[in-house]
Design a protein around this nucleic acid. Sequence first.
DNA 1: ATTTATATATAAGATTACGATATATATAAT
DNA 2: ATTATATATATCGTAATCTTATATATAAAT
Lengths: 132, 132
Amino acid sequence: MESSANEFLRGTLKTIILKLLTEQRPASDELSGVSFTRQGRMYGYEITQAVKERTKGEITLSFGALYPVLHKLEQEGLLTTETEEVEGRLRKYYTLTPQGTQVAVQKVSDFERFMDTMRHLLQLPVNLATGH
Amino acid sequence: MESSANEFLRGTLKTIILKLLTEQRPASDELSGVSFTRQGRMYGYEITQAVKERTKGEITLSFGALYPVLHKLEQEGLLTTETEEVEGRLRKYYTLTPQGTQVAVQKVSDFERFMDTMRHLLQLPVNLATGH
DNA sequence: ATTTATATATAAGATTACGATATATATAAT
DNA sequence: ATTATATATATCGTAATCTTATATATAAAT
């Protein structure tokens, strides 16, 4: 049985992945040791965990769904990859290209608009109670 | 090129159709001429027009998408049909079964929850400005 | 006459997401 | 020693879903 959240996930995966990658994340210069923030760089497993944590387990991004999307985004020129060895294992980091950043912003905005349209279509109230 | 609204439509079609059918609509007793309201009864073409009008053309439900869903919902016992001749043409009306009404309510509620989750995941503000 | 609007429906094809599976290392518990 | 858990990438087959194109037909409008 498909979870009720994942039923609606169809079509939003790209948007979720691109948005997560736009976020500023802590980093450090390995030579100088100086800490700073920079635009995201995430590896596959990390993305699935981030989605799980933020949605308190409501949305589960399976690997079978994730990797095909990552590969497609890379193919489309929205992501680049760098593979690094971390603790004996290879880890593949994904980073947004400038075009990827642009598409990410566009897609999030499109999704907001879609939610408004759906709220109207389904005659749903604007949600004040659960404001974050 | 796929419209940005329709990109996110996947997974929401059943919910939209079921919800529209839950709505009270004007009707009349053909014998007595008395007007009243009753739970929806819509035909396919009417559904596509209702979606188009309410979303100001942002969401377009194609027939190729609509009919398979209607047939499936009927098969699943959520809808029943009655065919009538109107102005020389056959028209097929779809009505919710009691189970269909139940599923409709559940799906709309699931979708609201999904939107909340997505708003959180994408760090979107609660939308006050466009409240309907 | 022809186009537009109304109306139902199927077929072909592409896309998408999921479950299962394979591979591999590291660590913690039994 | 073995088992389990967590981390990590990736493919394959399948099922479901959606898009586009097509067929059919009537009525009204131009």
